[in-house]
Design a protein around this nucleic acid. Structure first.
Lengths: 220, 220, 220, 220
DNA sequence: AATGAATGAGACTTCATTCAT
DNA sequence: TATGAATGAAGTCTCATTCAT
């Protein structure tokens, strides 16, 4: 497939994402997508078999776009606390496109409900994305416990589940608070929530040390 | 409005919920809803202005059905730890109708995206439901701190946000794990996750007491 | 099905026949058929599943319309020569709607080629119609031989096949001569051709008696 | 026009015939024809103005392919009975490609119905083909009567019309019996039917002589 | 108040034809 | 001259909504 085509395919996927974001999948008309992509309706069908398959491709591509991993997160030589911080940063920074996330979720469910084949494809992709996050967390927590930075009695599966649930939950909720978001459902809120979770994991030198600042001052 | 009509209205709303659950709002046909409700298509329009307004009414009614409050949770005279436990129980027990929750969420977004007027109504309802949970948590946490059962340095807004986010996040995720759910995304998982959260809030008599059993027996 | 509906169904079938006759099945638009039938497009689909099934129903109905049997043909008490004459008359008289026959044939093949299920239905109907003619001829010829009016050495299957083939062949050919038909491909031509065939079957009293007039005068 | 082009034109016509045979003219896509012909879609338009003109050219070419004349049939020095036999043989032998004949007929009507201009061209071609057969028969019958082999009272136009009608009618009918043809609608059936017709034309030496074998042996 | 046949706007999709390469 | 990606007109079919009964 020549690069020209790849570009055009991207244009179509972007257009589809954009148009679907307005009013959802069903309300998106192929005419509109073609118009936004700057191609004709027929060209849409040269790249995608049907509206449904265009939707699925759009959802898959969008999910992949949202997956960002900082090198710092996966570097096993770094202090686990720094790696957790980096992960928090990464997640908080990605929290900006809230609406897109929510619409994406809606589109995903449209696809899952509409297309039996799309369902398998999408669920597999989602599990793979989640699995990536879980493995990263697992590796950091394990390293943290072994290095004595994190409490040895941590119930790793529960902490992982909660970490991800907090992120998803805030994202989900943010969708409904879009018009006038409370501070909890913003990038800053994500940072605060996950930082709080991180604090619960640290070994209690003093009763409850703050991760962020004290670590520098403690070492004289 | 005679009870006969109220019954029929209910039948229609139930039918709408049921039909929408299959393939989403757009795929639900008024014919099908009428058929399932056991009325004619015309009757649908005697009760609801349009398909859109039927959707909104359905979503609102369903949301209200999901709101359950245990007396134990709101009783200010009980031990705050017991009240938190009761809340965990209530939430975990309600986790069974996962699919319905997810579909409800999808329908809600269909409505929000479809209807500019419905948007306000729905968001207001959702905020009010969330607000109820938040106030309950607030009251419990406050009472817990004042009574010395919970740690005095708790950042109440963050804990509330996380509590709700964990629940929503697990619910959200469970939707994608429906086919073969991992233990984290079941009623038991909810119980474990929220219990873990609760444990982080307790005053540390011993290093990390388990809430459930030790509290009654430890104090002589 | 109330009579009102039956009427409307007929109107639709007539409209379909009419519109298809102009330019064939593929060129016929559902919009046009609806317009000609005086109903809306949606109503078409209340009566027929698809354009294809409307076509098949149209072809079947038209075939049935063309089947005409005179009582005289099947009356076993009549002189077989009279019965053959009556059959010739019936076939010749039905030769008027030539164009319709040809277009019908074309439509039939459209249906046979297009729809695997329609194929079976149509071929079965055609066989049944042909079978009716064949049985009638068989009965007349048999009676004719037994009564000594027809030659005893007639090869009945061959004569039947030829009788029907002559009719079909003239019909087929007439379609291509429509603009300026030679006398052979008109009702009169059919009469002449089949009469000739009949003459070959008669017992040779004199060398080759004419069936039509002489039969009355021969019996003194 | 270099032979290369002529070859390519042939390939296209063959491909068109083949593709049209599957599902009729309307269902044949230019893409498919190009693919089967092994050329690009653009090339199709270098050889034919439009799909319609390609259809007409295809039908004309196919009709010409079907026209076969045996030298024996037209040789005026042969015994007219032998010439009739030869014609029967020729027609019966050509009866094998039944399906093709039927599809050809269907295509012809597609063309006639579709293209007002093609209509004249096609009908002219058909008349010319038929005319050739008619003249051959005319010449044979005339010779037969003059030489005393055939009955002097033959109504030549009627016999010609019937001869051709029998052939066309059997062909037409065979199309509908394709799945499970009765013996009447096969090459053998054609032979039997036309032989029967021939027998009716012979001068009655004995009451009803068989053409094939007896003619040579009976006369001492 | 209830019914459901009729309506027709609007969506998806196909495919003959064009034209830049 | 050959190619095949792009085009967009046109057709089928769906389904929310209406309204006569």
């Amino acid at each position: 497939m020549p690069p020209q085509n790849e570009t055009k395919r991207h244009r179509i996927l972007d257009a589809a994402r954009q148009v679907c974001s307005q009013n959802g999948y069903e309300a998106a008309r192929m005419d509109d997508i073609a118009h936004v992509a700057g191609v004709s309706k027929g060209t849409l069908y040269n790249f995608f078999e049907s509206k449904e398959s265009l939707l699925i491709a759009t959802v898959l591509a969008t999910h992949e776009d949202f997956v960002v991993v900082l090198p710092a997160v996966s570097d096993p030589n770094l202090d686990p606390r720094l790696r957790l911080e980096a992960l928090v940063d990464s997640l908080a920074d990605g929290f900006d496109g809230i609406t897109q996330h929510i619409v994406l979720s809606h589109l995903t469910w449209s696809a899952v409900l509409t297309s039996p084949s799309g369902r398998q494809q999408l669920l597999a992709t989602l599990r793979s994305i989640y699995s990536g996050y879980e493995q990263q967390l697992q590796s950091i927590l394990q390293a943290g416990i072994e290095s004595g930075v994190l409490r040895p009695d941590i119930d790793i599966p529960v902490v992982i589940a909660n970490w991800i649930a907090i992120y998803d939950g805030l994202l989900y909720r943010a969708g409904f608070e879009e018009d006038d978001p409370s501070p909890a459902y913003t990038a800053a809120g994500v940072r605060r929530s996950l930082t709080w979770l991180t604090e619960q994991l640290l070994v209690a030198d003093s009763t409850h040390p703050k991760v962020e600042l004290e670590e520098e001052t403690v070492r004289p």
